[in-house]
């Protein structure tokens, strides 16, 4: 069986909020290393990979592999019943047809308990190859969100060009064109506001802005986001957490 207690409901709320629009129904794969998820969106253009490591829970018990098929809109409704500072305990049997959630508030001794029905979801797992990316760009989450939002007003696509000087996001559409360039820089007082580019070779790739805007729903998970690019492979957008990550992969647009 699974028993996993997380100190702060807000962590789980933010993770689900980050992915629910992209992958409304998905399997949470639980085993002794933690709770993981891998799912493609309906159009198979983007893939979400999430991990909440066992050491982010206390206690954490899961002695065999359990897949929890969850409708994330249903889970969101139940998680709204938890306050951000509540502890959440997740419980499920070995072959479960429901997931039990207990929310506890130690301050006012309030305990609430919910069960949500699980679904059978036939989901194939894809092998994600270990990739040495040509460019890896770390920038403030809020900056990335702003760039995606701004450029999505002009165009459906953005070209991301990484050089050792920095990264340039550019787009063109019916009303005109636009670009934002971030030069590599280090903010000594606030390192999370720095822009860092690790580069082995220059990269220039084009992606759909609609998906990037969607990925930015994960912005509350981390102060920085890392974009990893190589020519002709999907972009990796990674939000790291203390005990896990949310990664989005986005297939590029290529010349016809």
């Amino acid at each position: 069986m699974l028993e996993a207690r997380i100190e702060q409901a807000s962590v789980l709320k933010r993770v689900i909020e980050a992915i629910k629009d992209l992958v409304p129904d998905c399997n949470f794969d639980c085993n002794d290393t933690g709770i993981a998820l891998q799912a493609m969106d309906n159009s198979h253009v983007a893939l979400v990979a999430m991990l909440l490591r066992a050491d982010g829970f206390s206690p954490y018990r899961c002695d065999r592999n359990i897949a929890l098929g969850i409708n994330l809109n249903s889970l969101t409704k139940v998680l709204r019943c938890a306050q951000n500072e509540d502890m959440i305990t997740l419980k499920a049997d070995d072959a479960p047809d429901s997931l039990n959630l207990v929310f506890e508030n130690t301050e006012n001794e309030r305990i609430s308990e919910y069960d949500i029905k699980l679904m059978d979801i036939d989901q194939e797992h894809l092998g994600i190859p270990d990739t040495e990316y040509s460019a890896s760009i770390t920038l403030p989450t809020a900056e990335f969100q702003r760039i995606c939002r701004d450029l999505s007003q002009l165009s459906e696509s953005v070209a991301i060009e990484a050089t050792k000087e920095g990264v340039k996001f550019s787009c063109s559409g019916d009303i005109g064109n636009g670009s934002v360039t971030l030069r590599t820089h280090q903010n000594v007082d606030k390192p999370e506001l720095s822009t860092k580019v690790d580069l082995t070779e220059p990269v220039n790739l084009t992606f759909s802005l609609k998906y990037l805007v969607n990925f930015c729903k994960a912005s509350s998970l981390s102060q920085t986001v890392t974009l990893s690019l190589s020519n002709e492979v999907p972009l990796l957008v990674e939000y790291k957490m203390d005990n896990g990550y949310v990664r989005f992969y986005l297939a590029p647009k290529i010349d016809e």
């Binding site: 253009v45 194939e124 894809l126 092998g127 759909s208 999907p234 590029p252 290529i254």
Partner: peptide, 14 residues
């Protein structure tokens, strides 16, 4: 123009 590719053309089922 550019054409959108899919994830399945890069990552294969396990």
């Amino acid at each position: 123009g550019k054409q959108q590719t899919t994830i399945s053309s890069f990552f294969t089922p396990k």
